[in-house]
Design a protein around this nucleic acid. Sequence first.
DNA 1: ACCAGATGATTAGGAAGCTAACTATATGGG
DNA 2: CCCATATAGTTAGCTTCCTAATCATCTGGT
Lengths: 173, 173
Amino acid sequence: MSDEDANPGAAPTLEQARKQIARYGLETDPQAVLVAVRLMAAGARLDRASEVHFARSGLSTGRYRLLVDLEDSDGEKSPSQLAKSLGVSRATVTGLVVGLEREGLVARRASTEDGRGAVVVLTARGSQRLRDMAADHFARLEALVGGLAADERGLFLDLLERITQRIDALTAE
Amino acid sequence: MSDEDANPGAAPTLEQARKQIARYGLETDPQAVLVAVRLMAAGARLDRASEVHFARSGLSTGRYRLLVDLEDSDGEKSPSQLAKSLGVSRATVTGLVVGLEREGLVARRASTEDGRGAVVVLTARGSQRLRDMAADHFARLEALVGGLAADERGLFLDLLERITQRIDALTAE
DNA sequence: ACCAGATGATTAGGAAGCTAACTATATGGG
DNA sequence: CCCATATAGTTAGCTTCCTAATCATCTGGT
């Protein structure tokens, strides 16, 4: 270990994990810790990069995901349903919709069936925005994963799925 | 596709990816898109879960990472070095240190070598906080990855590494 | 038919990250 | 030796997310 970290992107090493575990006299598998920590670091980095990417189209990651969700649902959906499928709180959906409405990418209507409810509608302009982004967006996603062969992608999805299933265990009781 | 999403945790499907790509007449590999999107979703979910997890010890993910980084560096480091190794901005480090200092987990000293510089020092109390958290923390990390066999963990790390290397490509140009 | 409790949406306020701008100190070329 | 430029740290202001509280409406048990 020299004076410099030589590790600017914040990717921890197996050696660091090992040392931390030893420091507290634990028996944990260092590699398991490394997987968890690296996944968190990768997630955070990807998150920031996504924001930059979407900002180029005048959107944020959250707003883009909401538009896509809307388009996948024939252009309309209630805020509560959006919150559920996007995995964010209803309050967050309110904020996203306010921003998107201001730019004319979605519109809000009162629900006809439920006096409390609202319906968020994708506008022609919102739909066009998605269309404008599509080619570049999907190309970049493909580039991100381009280092993996087809069978490796399937494998990665399987492994990732088996980790994400247990995310709740991180906070459970 | 019924009325309900049956997919509350926000994990997109291959079918959705395929439909989106088809909608815009693109040639992108749906599985590649799925990998990218799932990784982003997993990262975001893990991030929130981490905050909840660390909040139980009165910390945030960022504050915890700073304390650990400090301990890995013999208990002291400059804010700039911390920013680099944590992969966050200097301004963020200032904020984290302010909070940690308020709780007595770190202290700030002026650098003896550089009149501009400062040194963040891990206090006994900060060190103790890490010690108190260790057993539970590492056990939870191990549980998170517990669905993977040892060789699968290595494989996952390799695949993840090959994706994260390309994160910059998402925003390049 | 009514009231209690559930549910939909919003608002208010907080935390963590960012960039840009500011202050103070170092450093190096002329 | 001095001034231009670079670097360290902080501050101000923005965004996104969150939880908790509020208000309106719906629903079910008596």
